[in-house]
Structure formats: C-alpha cells, structure tokens
Write a protein that binds this DNA or RNA. Structure first.
Length: 595
RNA sequence: GUUUCUGUAGCUCAGCAGGAUAGAGCGUUCGCCUCCUAAGCGAAAGGCCGGCGGUUCGAAUCCGCCCAGGAACACCA
C-alpha cells in the first residue's frame, strides 16, 4: 500500500496541476512548525521562478483547488508562500485501518528483491570479544534485520579472522608448552583425539603470550612464521590443531554473540577461501592486472578522477603469502559465485576505508565482482569513553565484552530491585534485557559513521532518549492490557477495527499525533533501509513513545465509562505496542513484561 | 605533508534533495502521584549552527578559503 506521505503528495500534485502548475512541486514534508500545521508543502516558492509569479499567489491558487479535498481538513497559504496542511481525521483513520489490516503495517514489498550479503562482526579466533567488537555486532545486526524486514534476502556472515600469523603464533606457543602433544609428531598417522587439548580460557591466555614473544624474540618470530606457512601449506597435525582452536573458539564466540542477541547465517572466515587463492591470483596475473612491485604482487587501482595517490593493492606479500587483501578479494569472488548478490555490505571500523577502497577497486577491475554488484563500505566510528578518548579500562587495557555487559547488567539489577518488589530471578532477567536495550539503543541512536561516547553512567541512567524509556513505555501498555484482560476484556482485538475508529481517539492532539506518527512507518523503514540508518528507527520509536506518553498521561483508559470508547483505546494500545515490538526488533532487543 | 571525516545549547546528539521562531535528551529551575508503573507528563532558562567570503528572494544545509580536532596514507588485520 502507498506510503502515507505519498498519498498526501499525490493530492498536492493534483492540486498543483489543476491550478496549472507543475505537479512535481507538490512535495510534502512533516511540518517543522507543529504549532502551525501538521504537514507542509513548499512547492509554491520553488515554482515562483518557473512560472514568474509571486509564490504566495501560486500557493493561493493551489489551496483553492484543495477546497473539496477529503485528504486535508485544512490547507492555507501563508507568506511568503508556504502551504500549511492538516490531514482530515477521516482520511487518517482510514489509512490506519488499512495499515493494520496489512502485513508489516502496509509496507510494500520491494520492486525487486535484492540479495544482500552483510559482513559484520569480524572477531578473531582465540581472542575474547572486547568492546571493539560491540559496534559492528550491534550495527550489523540491525542493518541485517532492517534489510530483511524491508523484504530483501539477507545473508549475514561473521567473517572470522582465522588465518594467518596469529594462528602460527598460537601453534608455536603451544609447541613450546606442550611439545608432547600428538599434533606435533610428524610421523603420526593415526586418528587425532576428539577432545581439544585446551580450554577457551587457556587458549585466550596463549595468544597474548605468543604475540608478546614475537615482538621481543626474532628467533621465536621466525618459528611462528614458519609454522604459519606450514599450517597454510597443509601440515596434517597443524591443521588438526587449528581445527581444534577454531572449534573451541567458535563455540565460545557463539555463546557471547547469543548473549548480545546477534546471530549470523554464516560462520565463515578467512581460511574458507584459502584454496581459491592460487587460481584467483594466477588469473589476475594472466589478465595482466597483477604485477610484481618491490617483491610484492600488486594491482594498480589509481583512477583519473582521484584527488590523491592511492597505493596499489597488495595481492600477495613479497614472501608469497596472502594477507588481508588477498582473503577479502577471494571472499568477494566466493560470495559472487555462491550468492550472486546485488550488494555486499561491510560493517567495519571506518579506519579501514582505504583497505576497502583498494579491495573494491581491485575486485571490479579484475572481474572478481560483477560490475553491477554494489560493494559498500559502512564504516563506523570509534567508541570513546566519557573523556573522549578510545574506550579503555582504567589500567589502559582492552575491556572484555562480557565484563562490560556484566557491569551494566549489575547496575541495572540494583536499580530494578531497589525500585520494585520483583522476584529475584525475574529482576535479573529484566535487568539483562534492559541492559542490552540501553547499550544497543545508545549505540544505534547515533549515526554509525561518527565516533561516539560510550558513557556507562548515562546509559544506565535511562531517562529520556534511551532504550529503557522505550521499554518502559511498552511495559506500561502491557500492564494496561493485562489488567483489561483480568477485567474480562478482549485483548486480542482485530486491528481492522480501525476502519471505524472511535472519534474519541483522534479528537485530542496527542491521539492524533500518535496516529500520524504511526502513519509514517513505511516511509521510515524505506529510509532506514536505503540509507543503512538504524538511527532513523530509533528516532521514529522515540517520537512515537513521546507522543504516546502524552496521550497516556491525559487519557484515563481503564477508567473510561463508555465501553466502546474504552475498546477503541485498547485497540490503539495493541496497535502501538505491535509497532514498538517491531521497531525494537529491528534494533535488536526485546521488552520485558514488567520493570 | 597529502587525503579524508568531524566541528550545532554547559554535556551527549538529531536536523543537511536550501524555506517560517535551528530541535531532542542529560544537567539547571519551576509545576504535576486520593488516578492504568513519576524509569512518566507539562513548562522555563540556555544558540551569531567553528570563522570569513560566495551563490540565492532565503544558507546550519550548496560552493570556496581559513581555524581547530580525529583518522588513513604498500607487504598488520
């Protein structure tokens, strides 16, 4: 079904054309002067030059045509040429009825369903998730959900860092510590044990040790490089050991992502495309794109329109080994072969932009990606502490994600248990839900590309424009609905009832605002999807919550003596709640029953 | 140095296919719980939208030049 604003625009277009002007002038926007009108059209001013006429005259001509309009209850021309509009309640009601009778609140399926691969997360195996992994997980997950809701086929890939030097380092350290392990016996030909030779916490300890030794000890580093090479070349024991590293690590990562309510369709990594590399590289050479420069195999990516010099893309290092660019290129090729996507989105730290420019250009130039595939870099900004510098623990180390999460959950728990008399296990559960909402909303309500300040105190304060505020609004609705049910009311009402909505719902300004907010839903989804902008969902939900809370404040719902009016209110509550559920679902969190 | 991003209220941020009086939240001040959860609602104070020019009837928004801060700039991912 057509978007609400489009319906308004169509009405304006007709009026412009009937008055003898260009219909394209009839663009309608939500008013920036709510004291004067609900919607506005500034087309008369834009048309002044075109038609050599004073804007106010054009506006008046158009307004005259709207006299009979069923869409607008009022339209006036205001100096210097604004057209101020209010929608008719009948029209709004009709739209709302239709909206709730349709799936997804009347959101139209896309003209063409796209296949979109989203690459987000990007954790390294054998290393715990830390605060740096929070943003890609939250933003990527939300973009994935929004894109899917918009009607597209979406594949989320965690894209593990599971290949290369760190793996060799771990093997080296393990060999030093436990040389007796069967994995290191080159003459061994039997089956390898099922049980991993380490736990996740042991594994997590090994890597920093190995990495530290590499920096100090040249000889150790050489061995690590050698072991990396042997792993990549397929030494049997190393491969088996590596599989164990992967297994233990992925199990742990899944557990952690699950806590964040973040999930991936694919758990692939850099290693998965390793065997595609030789062929890919050979072809790049044969086609004349890749050549040796300073020992490394590179592809030039400079373009005429460039304002600065771009270094070439290094496809193979001078020792012949692959690097980050190599696996990313092969991964593009893999995704093209496997999914034939319309777009591949990379939700990664914005500091990696140059790398992705290199990879994208190389992929297009060498035909790894088809020309029409949209390769998009969605860079997010740094998460800073309240002092404005990158988020660190007090002693300067990286903060593990689970500690951060736990810390916020604990604070939430305290707050909840001091406010309300709730059983302990429910309080704990509610605290976890609320903490996640606070973190996710706090992140997503800012534009992804900007750096943002992660202020634990501000998030746990949860007043104002926060996730918990949304949840609180929802909980209030749920509370009324359950009471209504206790009193014998029918809560599972049919939303089609809005077709004959009770006039009482719209007569007050707050009620009408709630309806107008909801009517903008499909427009908002459209923008959030095309602009990859979850913060639009936040802004929408926050506005709806504000307007709903005003309505809530001056409407006594359960105390309403007129039963039909009360039923209409309940209908509205159901509708608003449903829309909230949808919005927070797109943002990646849930609401508790009570808080 | 080059390129690039950012600069909006004391703080954290929206707004940027140009439009009326630049919006929120926090914080500050003042109201509102005999009433469905006050994690709420209502109101006030607080701004030469980094600076200077330009385009335009009209600029936070578009263009140019400055200033300040961040980031990236070939074999780490």
């Amino acid at each position: 079904m057509e978007k609400f604003i489009v319906k308004l625009e169509n009405e304006m277009k007709k009026a412009f054309e009937a008055a003898g002007y260009d219909g394209s002038l009839g663009r309608v926007t939500v008013s920036n002067r709510p004291d004067l009108c609900e919607y506005q059209c500034n087309g008369a001013m834009a048309g002044a030059k075109l038609f050599h006429k004073a804007p106010i005259m054009i506006a008046e001509d158009v307004v005259k045509q709207l006299g009979e309009s069923k869409v607008f209850s009022s339209a006036e021309a205001v100096a210097p040429g604004f057209i101020n509009l209010k929608v008719s309640e009948a029209f709004l009601t009709e739209y709302a009825g239709e909206m709730f009778a349709n799936d997804k609140f009347g959101l139209e399926a896309p003209e063409k369903q796209q296949t979109i691969v989203i690459d987000y997360g990007g954790p390294n195996v054998a290393k715990p998730l830390h605060v740096g992994h929070l943003r890609p997980a939250i933003i990527g997950e939300s973009i994935k959900r929004i894109s899917r809701y918009a009607g597209h086929k979406v594949i989320g890939d965690v894209h593990l860092g599971d290949w290369g030097m760190p793996m060799g380092q771990i093997i080296t350290e393990l060999k030093e510590k436990k040389p007796e392990l069967v994995y290191f016996d080159e003459s061994y030909t039997g089956e390898y044990p099922e049980e991993p030779p380490f736990t996740i916490s042991e594994l997590e300890e090994i890597y920093p040790v190995a990495s530290g030794k590499c920096k100090k000890d040249e000889d150790y580093k050489k061995r690590a490089l050698q072991n990396t090479k042997e792993l990549q070349e397929g030494r049997r024991g190393y491969r088996e050991l590596w599989k164990q590293i992967l297994k233990v690590s992925v199990t742990d990562l899944k557990k952690n992502y699950e806590k964040l309510d973040v999930s991936f369709d694919l758990w692939m990594g850099e290693s998965d495309v390793d065997d595609m590399i030789p062929e890919m590289v050979d072809k790049m050479k044969a086609d004349g794109f890749a050549y040796l420069s300073e020992g490394a195999l590179v592809v030039d990516i400079a373009e005429e329109s460039d304002k600065k010099e771009y270094p070439p893309c290094i496809v193979l290092k001078s020792d012949g080994a692959s690097n980050y660019e190599t696996t990313d290129l092969a991964t593009i090729k893999y995704r093209e072969n496997e999914f034939n996507p319309d777009a591949i989105l990379y939700v990664v730290d914005k500091r990696q932009e140059l790398h992705f420019i290199q990879v994208f250009r190389t992929a297009k130039k060498c035909g790894l990606a088809k020309p029409e595939t949209s390769l998009e870099f969605i860079g997010f900004g740094t998460m800073n502490g309240s002092d404005g510098t990158p988020f660190k623990t007090r002693d300067g180390g990286v903060l593990r994600l689970e500690y951060l999460l736990g810390q916020i959950e604990d604070q939430m728990y305290e707050k909840i248990s001091e406010n309300k008399d709730i059983p302990e296990d429910e309080a704990k559960k509610t605290a976890d839900i609320t903490a996640l909402a606070a973190i996710k909303y706090g992140d997503l309500s800012n534009q992804a590309s900007k750096d943002y300040v992660f202020d634990v105190d501000r998030f746990t304060a949860f007043e104002g424009d926060t996730g918990p505020y949304l949840l609180y609004t929802m909980v209030r609705i749920k509370s009324i609905l359950s009471r209504y049910k206790e009193q014998g009311g029918d809560v599972n009402r049919d939303m089609r009832g809005f077709g004959e909505v009770h006039p009482a719902l719209l007569c007050g300004v707050p009620g009408k605002n709630v309806f107008r907010d909801m009517a903008g839903f499909s427009q908002m989804i459209d923008e959030a999807f095309t602009e990859r902008a979850p913060h639009k969902v936040c802004a929408f939900a926050y506005r709806l919550a504000n307007d709903f809370n005003s309505f809530y404040h001056d409407t006594k719902i359960l105390a309403e003596p007129d039963e039909s009016k009360k039923a209409a209110y309940i209908n509205l509550l159901n509708a608003v709640l449903e829309m909230f559920e949808c919005c927070i679902g797109l943002l990646g969190f849930n609401a508790p029953e009570r808080m």
